[in-house]
Nucleic acid binder design. Structure first.
Lengths: 355, 355
DNA sequence: TTGTAAGCGTTATCAG
DNA sequence: CTGATAACGCTTACAA
C-alpha cells in the first residue's frame, strides 16, 4: 500500500450554515429559507442576494436539520436478506431508479439473517427514512414486522405471508413453476426431476408447489424421489448431476428452480457426456443474462427483478401518501415462460412464442 | 392488482420521544440520554427505570436529531455509475458487510451518468453521511470531486486519476490484463485479438494498456486491426464473433476484457462450430461465478469485488478517523490469473497454478 | 448522581 | 414582503 501524505484538510473553514448565508446576503434566515424552498413571497432583490450568497459560500443545507423540523427525510430504507448475484443487483437498481425519479434517497442494509436483526436495522433508521421496503429473510414471526410497520409504512418484497397494514409486491413463483413444468409435460415428459433451493426458502417452496401442481393438473403422480435439494448456487447445481444420473429409471427432464443451478447442472452434464436436451431436458427459473448464452440456451421463466424494485418504491410511495386510513395493495408481477433450446421444444413451439 | 382495505394506521399514537421516556421513568431527559449512551455515571435504579420506560413506550431514538447534535451520522454514502450485474452487487455487498461491522449505515445512489449528477447526489447527502465512497462515472473534471472532498472524506473506487486529498482503492486492471495476455503469449499465441469495453471507460483503457504492454514485453508488435470494441455486455461479445472470424489471418486467441463478453463470444463460436480452445483460445477478465461453469471453463483474471467494497469502507473509515492532517492511502488489489480450459493451457500448467 | 439549559441547523408561525 | 422566535429531538457542559 502506497502512502501519499496530504496536508489538505476536509474543509478549510467550518461549513456554512443558513445563518452565514443570511448574514452574507443581509437578510434574515427566514428569508433564506424561503428562497431556498422556492416561496413566492420574496422580493426579487432579496432572492438574488440570497442565491449569490449561497454560491459564494458554497452552502449546502443540512439534511438532518431539515428532516428534524419537517418530519420528512425524503429517504426510503431497504432491508434485504443475504442475497447476491444478478437478482440482488437488479432489485437495487430498480429501487434506485424509481427512487431518483421521485427524489428520494435510498438507505440500504442487506445480509440480514433473521427477522430480529432486521428489526434492529430498522430501528437504526428511525428518523432517517419515511418508509421501508423489506424482504424478510425467514418465515419467522411477523411480530417484528408489525413493530416496524407501526412506525413507518412498510412494503414487503416477496412476502412469506400476509401482514396486516403492509403493501406487498411479489413474483408469481407458483404460477411460473407450474408453467415451466407444464411446458415440459406438454412436450411429453413425465419423469421430471426438480433440483430445488434450500428448505425453508420461500421462493423454493413456492416453486416446488408449482412443480407439484403441474403434475396434479395433468393427473400425473409426482414422485418424492425426483425431488432433489440444492441451495441456489451454481456449484450445488453442478453437484446435483451425480444424484440425478443415479436415479432409476432416469428422469427425462429436470426443473432447476433457478438458472444458476441449471447452469451448473448443464456444465456437469457436459463433462458426463449427457446430451441436453436429447438425453435430458433442462429448464431453469429467473432468466438471468447468461441464460440466453448457455449451450444450449436455457428455457426458463423470466423474472424482472428491476421492475420488482421499481414497483416496490412506487407502491411504497403510494402507501406513504395516502394519509387517511391507508389501503394496502398486493401486486404480483407476471413471470412469463421463455422457450429456448434446453427444453427440446420444437422450432415451431419456439416460433409460436415470439409471435 | 388486488386491493385489501386496512384500517390499521402507521402508528396509534405519536411516536415516543426522549421526553416521554424521561417522564415515564421519572427522571430528566439528560439521564435518559446518559443511560441510552451507556454513561457510567447513572444510578442502577435510574438505569432500570429508564430501560423499562424505553421498553414500555417502545422508544426508538430519532437519528436525525442525534446527528444534528453530535455532528455525526454514523452513515457513509456510496455513489456509483450505472453498473450492473455481479460486480455491482458484490461491491455493494462488500461495502454493506464492512459497514455493518463498524456500525455504519449505507446510503446508496447509483446510476450516475456524469460527475455533475454525482455532485448533486452528494449535496443531497449533506448532514446524512460522515464520508463518501464514490466511483466517478467519467474521466470528467475532477473539480466536482474536489468540491465534495471539501465537505467530507472521500474514497475513490477505481479512480480515473489521482485527486488530492482522496484515498483510493482499485483493481490492478493493467497488471491483470498484461498477465492474462502474457499467459496467452507464453502458450505460443502471437495473433491475439482483444474485444474491449466501451471507449472512454477507464477499466477498458487500462486493460487495453495491459494487452499492449504484454506484446511490448515480448518484443512483439501489437496490431490495431486486432482491437475490437464491445460494451462489456454478453450480447456485444456475441456480436463480436462475426468481426473476429472475418479477420485475416484469423487470430488464434482472443482476450475479452470481461467475462460477460467472453461468454457471449463462447456462445457465438459454438454455433459457428469454432472449437475453443483448439481453433481459438479465449480468456476473460473478472472471474464471475459462472466462468467456472462455462464450456469450456473460462481462463480469466480474478477480481474480488466484494473485497473491493470491504476495503473501501475500511480505508474510508481510516481517513475519517485520522483527524489531524489526514494522510491518503492508495491501495491496489491484486488480480490473479485463473487458468481453466478455454485458453488451451496444458494440464501441467493448470496443475502448477493450484500448487 | 442528577437536572437545567444551551445549542445543533432547519422550518414555520407569527407579528410587523 | 420580512424578521423574530419558537419548535423539532437530542447531547452535553455546567451546576447543584
Amino acid at each position: 500500500m502506497e502512502e501519499v501524505g496530504s496536508a489538505l484538510p476536509h474543509r478549510e473553514a467550518p461549513l456554512a450554515t443558513i445563518r452565514d448565508v443570511a448574514q452574507a446576503a443581509g437578510v434574515s434566515i427566514a428569508t433564506v429559507s424561503r428562497v431556498l424552498n422556492g416561496s413566492p413571497r420574496v422580493s426579487d432583490d432579496a432572492r438574488d442576494r440570497v442565491w449569490s450568497a449561497v454560491a459564494e459560500l458554497d452552502y449546502w443545507p443540512n439534511t438532518a436539520a431539515q428532516s428534524l423540523t419537517t418530519r420528512r427525510s425524503n429517504a426510503i430504507g431497504v432491508l434485504l436478506p443475504d442475497l447476491y448475484g444478478e437478482f440482488f443487483s437488479e432489485v437495487i437498481r430498480g429501487i434506485d431508479h424509481a427512487a431518483r425519479q421521485v427524489k428520494q434517497q435510498v438507505l440500504i442494509s442487506s445480509s440480514h439473517a433473521d427477522t430480529n436483526t432486521v428489526l434492529s436495522a430498522a430501528r437504526a433508521m428511525r428518523g432517517r427514512i419515511d418508509g421501508l421496503i423489506m424482504m424478510a429473510p425467514d418465515q419467522g414471526s411477523i411480530e417484528p414486522i408489525h413493530q416496524i410497520a407501526r412506525r413507518f409504512p412498510v412494503l414487503l418484497l416477496n412476502p412469506r405471508s400476509a401482514v396486516a397494514g403492509c403493501s406487498t409486491v411479489s413474483i408469481s413463483n407458483f404460477e411460473g413453476a407450474r408453467t415451466v413444468v407444464g411446458h415440459l409435460l406438454s412436450l411429453g415428459h413425465t419423469r421430471i426431476a426438480i433440483v430445488n433451493g434450500p428448505k425453508g426458502n420461500v421462493d423454493a417452496e413456492e416453486r416446488r408447489r408449482g412443480y407439484r401442481d403441474a403434475f396434479a393438473r395433468a393427473d400425473l403422480p409426482a414422485s418424492a424421489t425426483l425431488e432433489l435439494c440444492g441451495d441456489f448456487t451454481e456449484s450445488s447445481g453442478f453437484d446435483s448431476a451425480q444424484d440425478l444420473l443415479r436415479l432409476w429409471p432416469r428422469p427425462t427432464a429436470v426443473f432447476a428452480t433457478n438458472d444458476a443451478m441449471a447452469l451448473g447442472l448443464l456444465s456437469a452434464l457436459q463433462t458426463e457426456h449427457v446430451r441436453v436436451p436429447e438425453d435430458l431436458a433442462i429448464v431453469g427459473f429467473d432468466d438471468i443474462a447468461i441464460a440466453r448464452y448457455a449451450s444450449p440456451p436455457l428455457t426458463t421463466i423470466h423474472v424482472d427483478a428491476f421492475e420488482l424494485g421499481e414497483r416496490s418504491v412506487q407502491l411504497l410511495l403510494q402507501a406513504m401518501s395516502s394519509e387517511t386510513g391507508r389501503a394496502c395493495h398486493d401486486e404480483v408481477l407476471p413471470a412469463p415462460l421463455v422457450i429456448r433450446r434446453s427444453c427440446g421444444a420444437t422450432p415451431a413451439a419456439m416460433q409460436a412464442q415470439t409471435s
